[in-house]
Design a protein around this nucleic acid. Structure first.
Length: 494
RNA sequence: CGGGGAUUGGCCUAGUGGUAAGGCGCAGCGUUCGGGACGCUGAGAUCGGGAGUUCGAAUCUCCCAUCCCCGACCA
């Protein structure tokens, strides 16, 4: 029996062991024993190409809203962290710290750290502190505001239990940092950037998300409040896909980010920060993949069409490949999609599985039969359906297929989420659902942290968010019975 | 840091005291090629490390290391 086939069948997206599934199926990341550094990912070209597309699209969306890119140092003086009390507490436990600046060779020919530094440097877990130390120098007048800056960077968080894509020790992300003259404008920006993330997740990645606010215990350390988008994975667990924080003046005050307003009065700025990381690739995989491997939505796929020429005799091969080239050129020119022709000297079936595993949304088969009929066979990755397409109708048909794959992927994920979302009115019900089929549980909550932590303790589920969409009804908190109008989503999360 | 489990060619696994076996993959040749091909040939492991028991250890004992899973922490 073929080993690879067995692996893919046994490691489905619904199995618990996602990490193994990533490694075997995605051909993109290596963790743990496969990585030279524990908890850090080696992202191979196939996986990185997805990230590059994400960067390209998001970056454009930011720029359309006046955001500019900049870059700040990887190392942050320890004292910067100590300036904001809540922020230190949130991150102190999980930081990598640089304490020495050289290595000496000892008698045993081992390298030992030397040159102890006066002030240790923290490898950035996030850049608020170092960026705002610069903002204090850059911002003087209301004319300097708003300041809208984004950084594409790597960050390090020494988490206890890493998981590929979802929680790696080092990860790549984008972090936006803005400063405004009024609270209202900062509030607005927090929501505006959250909307950018929603749009991107739903429109490009075909991942349906729910917008909401984090509870006090789940918010970003140092934020006034944290807005987020939450998605549901195929095992019913929740994944936070992106966050947008309203920082209030919590950083402006300790970092003295001040400006003079129109009336000549000195004021502290109002700030926001927002980010999306390589975790989003994990979300993409865990939302759309099936037992055959990845499925990448056409709008974000590094390559949306793969052409498999099929031949048995040498003269067929020549015809078929020249035809494949014609078609590729046409699709590239008229649809602007990346196309690859797989000319490897392998059996067609073997190539089919290869590209299905990698998640390429559309496959085109061209064989001697098609040459005679003036057709091609197009195969959708999401449904597996085979469609014979006449060459005269090629371009509009391919366009249509790609569009329909994109929207069907979204629909499928949305329907699954709806199916796995239940509203409950008793504590017993929430416990049963979470223990049984999982998914999202919508329930009324009084806002008390005690009720929240009781649920977490007894079910391991947390409040994923308080959705923006609320019914204006008075009900009872399902935990303590106190009257409330707040509906929240409980779920087990990654 | 607590609780479980694992470690045998590049990968997966068999082997419970007698001197390492098979599959995948890899290389070569030939036949194949519209859903993971097959035949023949070949390369590749002192069985995680160390100590001990024994005539003899992948196998038994002790120590160590590393990794995985569950939990605490978290984008």
């Amino acid at each position: 029996m073929n080993k690879t086939k067995e692996n893919i069948n046994s490691i489905t997206p619904r199995s618990k062991d996602y990490s193994k599934w990533y490694l075997d199926v995605i051909d993109a990341a290596e963790l743990a024993e496969n990585s030279p550094v524990r908890g850090c990912m080696v992202i191979k070209p196939n996986g990185y190409a997805i990230w590059e597309n994400i960067q390209k699209v998001l970056d454009n969306m930011f720029k359309l809203r006046g955001v500019k890119n900049a870059y700040f140092p990887l190392f942050i003086p320890k004292s910067f962290f100590e300036k904001e009390a809540e922020h230190v507490e949130g991150f102190a436990k999980e930081c990598a710290i640089v304490t020495h600046h050289r290595l000496n060779l000892n008698k045993e020919r081992k390298l030992v750290p030397a040159g102890l530094m006066e002030e240790p440097l923290v490898v950035r877990p996030t850049s608020e502190t170092i960026i705002y130390s610069m903002y204090a120098k850059w911002i003087h007048s209301f004319r300097d505001l708003p300041m809208l800056i984004n950084q594409w960077a790597n960050v390090v968080r020494w988490e206890l239990r890493p998981r590929p894509f979802l929680r790696t020790t080092e990860f790549l992300w984008q972090e936006g940092h803005t400063a405004h003259s009024t609270k209202e404008e900062a509030d607005e920006t927090t929501l505006q950037m959250l909307e950018v993330y929603r749009d991107f997740a739903e429109d490009y990645l075909a991942i349906p998300v729910i917008k909401g606010i984090k509870s006090e215990s789940e918010k970003f350390a140092g934020a006034a409040y944290t807005a987020c988008i939450e998605a549901m994975m195929q095992d019913g667990k929740a994944l936070q896909v992106a966050t947008s924080h309203m920082l209030g003046q919590n950083f402006a005050k300790p970092f003295k980010v001040k400006f003079t307003d129109e009336n000549g009065n000195e004021q502290y700025v109002w700030q926001t920060s927002w980010g999306m990381s390589t975790r989003i690739i994990g979300a993409l995989i865990m939302t759309h993949s099936d037992d055959k491997g990845l499925i990448i939505p056409p709008k974000i796929a590094p390559m949306s069409v793969v052409i498999i020429p099929i031949w048995s005799k040498d003269h067929d091969k020549k015809d078929v490949i020249s035809k494949a080239n014609n078609i590729a050129t046409k699709i590239i020119a008229e649809i602007g999609q990346v196309v690859h022709i797989d000319e490897r000297d392998e059996r067609p079936g073997s190539k089919f599985y290869d590209w299905e595993k990698k998640g390429i949304p559309l496959r085109i088969e061209i064989g001697p039969r098609d040459i005679i009929n003036n057709t091609i066979v197009a195969v959708r990755r999401d449904t597996g359906s085979k469609i014979e397409v006449s060459l005269t109708n090629l371009v509009p048909k391919i366009k249509e297929l790609l569009n329909s794959i994109q929207s069907d992927l979204y629909k499928r994920a949305f329907q699954y989420r709806e199916k796995m979302t239940q509203e409950v009115d008793s504590y017993k019900a929430i416990k049963n659902i979470l223990a049984d089929k999982g998914g999202f549980v919508i329930a009324y909550w009084c806002g008390d942290q005690k009720c929240e932590s009781k649920v977490k303790k007894e079910t391991t589920a947390t409040i994923r968010c308080i959705p923006f969409e609320q019914k204006q009804e008075k009900r009872k908190c399902i935990i303590c019975g106190k009257e409330t109008s707040t509906r929240v989503i409980f779920a087990k999360a990654y």
